[in-house]
Simulated scan of single mutants.
Amino acid sequence: MTAATTKLTKTSRRQTLRGLGALLLGGSFISTPLAVLAQTGERAVRFILPVGAGSGVDTIVRAAGVALGKTLGRPVVVDNQPGAGGIVGTANLVKSAPDGMTLSVVSNNHVVYPSVYKSLPFDPIADITPICVLGSTPFVLVVNPLRLPASNVKELVALLKAKPDAYNYASSGNGTILHLAAEMFMEEAQVKAKHIPYKGVGPMIADLIGGQVDLGVLALPAVQAHLKSGALRAIGVGGSSRVAAAPDIPTIAEQGLPNYNIEGWFAVVGPAKLPAAEVKRIQAAVTAAYATPEVKEAMAKQGNTINPSSPEAAAQYFRSELAKYAKLVKKAGVELQ
């Protein structure tokens, strides 16, 4: 081997390692080893997630990555593209070819956008193809126990009322569902705290644990480990009933705020004009993946409810949720961006 060849080989190796490092740090997930993909040249199905790694939706999709690869018949790549409350990733999804090779899993935020932003780079209804509403995930109100030594709603409300200007709450971005969920709590409890928006769930959780912010609402799967370690403390879940995965956490409703009822949902979508046959095939594959024993177990541990809808029901649900959140945003007094 010549010196030039040796140098080229080392350079290529370094470039490959850098590429792999960037892939891992970027939060991508591939259900088939990279070496196999390189040898077979097999094209992967890309799931563009408009959220950061470690968020509720990200956790839900990654738990089913291997199963999705099997049922879809191709490797699956998770491509996290957070930013602007989810607009960045979705803007890229809608520009992709409607061939079934680029999909996304979106949440409540998708139908909140039109009520929060004066202009969007896409139409959240016309520019996507709903495939199925996959299920729901519980929200949990959490505090940093060192900053807010409260264990329940009554104690938290007392602390917030005693010092109305002393505390703040975090969200994953202005006008996101986590912002609305926290604002709903403030309104129901008749308390105030300063809103600190973040660019995604990851930085939000990091600063909650670090004590830069005091409280926030998050999807249960995103904070389970931090609740277990004691870094964060759960005050209550946002749904109408307790969660089997965390039965010791009472609902906020049962603690004196009966009108507080909000949870996250997640849905599989593709770009507009996805052929009906592809929609049907993908819906069946996603349903099968989330019905496998290992994925069902993972979803149960996370506290998620899986109940895949038909594409037609998903389309109708998106329209009804759009109207619902328009009212909620107006009621919460969220400023247009």
Results as ranks from 00 to 15, higher is better:
residue 219 A to N: 06
residue 179 H to V: 04
residue 196 I to R: 12
residue 134 L to N: 03
residue 272 A to M: 09
residue 255 Q to P: 09
residue 62 R to S: 13
residue 72 L to A: 04
residue 109 N to I: 00
residue 196 I to Q: 14
residue 201 V to Y: 08
residue 100 G to E: 00
residue 235 I to F: 03
residue 174 N to G: 15
residue 109 N to T: 00
residue 290 Y to I: 13
residue 84 A to E: 15
residue 327 K to I: 13
residue 72 L to H: 02
residue 210 G to Y: 01
residue 193 A to V: 07
residue 275 P to T: 14
residue 186 M to A: 14
residue 292 T to A: 08
residue 53 A to I: 08
residue 325 Y to K: 04
residue 99 D to K: 04
residue 218 L to E: 07
residue 112 V to F: 01
residue 236 G to H: 02
residue 158 A to N: 12
residue 12 S to A: 15
residue 124 P to L: 01
residue 255 Q to W: 07
residue 304 N to D: 13
residue 182 A to I: 09
residue 316 Q to R: 09
residue 305 T to F: 02
residue 312 E to K: 15
residue 259 N to V: 07
residue 144 N to V: 05
residue 106 V to P: 01
residue 88 V to S: 05
residue 277 A to K: 13
residue 272 A to H: 10
residue 256 G to M: 09
residue 70 K to V: 09
residue 41 G to N: 03
residue 213 V to W: 00
residue 29 F to V: 15
residue 284 A to W: 07
residue 73 G to W: 00
residue 317 Y to M: 12
residue 279 V to K: 12
residue 292 T to R: 11
residue 160 L to R: 08
residue 295 V to M: 09
residue 18 R to L: 15
residue 200 G to C: 06
residue 47 F to G: 03
residue 256 G to Y: 04
residue 90 T to P: 06
residue 200 G to S: 05
residue 224 Q to S: 11
residue 112 V to T: 00
residue 75 P to N: 01
residue 286 V to C: 11
residue 151 S to Q: 10
residue 100 G to I: 00
residue 13 R to P: 06
residue 170 A to P: 12
residue 303 G to H: 02
residue 204 M to L: 12
residue 204 M to F: 03
residue 157 V to Y: 02
residue 168 N to W: 10
residue 260 Y to Q: 14
residue 318 F to I: 07
residue 258 P to K: 11
residue 4 A to R: 11
residue 206 A to P: 06
residue 114 P to H: 00
residue 134 L to K: 05
residue 184 M to D: 14
residue 19 G to S: 13
residue 66 V to R: 14
residue 157 V to C: 04
residue 125 I to P: 02
residue 141 L to T: 02
residue 37 L to C: 07
residue 48 I to C: 04
residue 285 A to W: 12
residue 120 L to A: 01
residue 110 H to T: 02
residue 235 I to A: 03
residue 208 L to N: 04
residue 215 L to H: 02
residue 57 V to S: 05
residue 24 L to I: 14
residue 78 V to T: 06
residue 83 G to K: 04
residue 167 Y to H: 10
residue 84 A to I: 06
residue 162 A to N: 11
residue 161 K to N: 13
residue 32 T to M: 05
residue 210 G to I: 03
residue 262 I to H: 11
residue 313 A to I: 05
residue 10 K to W: 12
residue 147 R to F: 05
residue 277 A to R: 11
residue 206 A to N: 12
residue 310 S to V: 05
residue 285 A to L: 09
residue 250 P to I: 06
residue 95 K to R: 13
residue 235 I to M: 01
residue 113 Y to D: 00
residue 189 A to V: 07
residue 129 T to N: 03
residue 16 T to C: 07
residue 115 S to C: 03
residue 150 A to W: 03
residue 319 R to V: 14
residue 255 Q to F: 05
residue 157 V to I: 15
residue 291 A to F: 08
residue 28 S to T: 10
residue 321 E to R: 12
residue 102 T to L: 03
residue 277 A to F: 13
residue 289 A to C: 08
residue 8 L to E: 14
residue 95 K to I: 02
